[in-house]
Amino acid sequence: MFLAADRVSYTYNRRTGVEPVNAVCDVSVRIQRGSLTGLIGPNGCGKTTLLKLLAGVLAPDSGLVALDGRDLAGMSRRTVARRVAVVPQETHPAFEYSVIEMALMGRHPHLGPFQLEGPDDLAIAYEALAATGTAQLAERSYMTLSGGEKQRVVIASALTQTPEVLLLDEPTASLDLGFQIEIGLLLRRLNQERSATMVMATHDLNLAASLCDTLVLMRNGRVLASGNTREVLTSAMVRQLYDVEADVRVHELAGHLTVVPLGRIG
């Protein structure tokens, strides 16, 4: 197994004991190399925490996360960051970095403490911008971009890390329909053409159904089900996850499962 969490648990505020929150409880997931896995579940179900555990940004209280069979806990932050990149939900820098500066920050784990990026690093950053269709924005200030452009630049910055695994936290959450589709197509292209391994947390069941070959369904910090998208994404499962009655079927034109919510139960 390429990236695997084995019975991991994580509790916020465990150290202080003030209002501890069990975010992730005894969770095991297995991510295949080259797969595109969707992480689905209601707000507060532990998706973001699980992503941070998979990225090694948080260390599990118990259990372990392994990349290629090696425990992340035994690796330095830099070593992990060379292989695993994260695209957070939103990125708000405190200063007016240019787009190319944002992208080049992805080279951080590859550079020594006093090393400045060279022509090769610059080429990697420009290629990442080109792959996300943002090369023409390179000299613009990141803050002046639209939400969709910003998200694509952040994805480019993650690609500049030249990672083996890309972890995305609701990459389309604040985007309009057009940008949602654009980001979706970009992710599929990166996954298919460059065989990038991706894990994407999302609230958008239709996006997940159209992109992901595998789904992990979470509720209350635990995994309810995981497996092939067409097998696990059922109306029974949607009911169990969200307390929502939904019609789940393969759309004739789209060619993938679609979820139409019909109403809330109870």
Binding site: V57, A81, V86, P93
Partner: peptide, 15 residues
């Protein structure tokens, strides 16, 4: 540079 972008972003880039 990375801290000014955000703590999580910095951690994810290897800081």
């Amino acid at each position: 540079n990375l801290l000014s972008v955000g703590k999580d972003a910095a951690a994810a880039r290897g800081v």
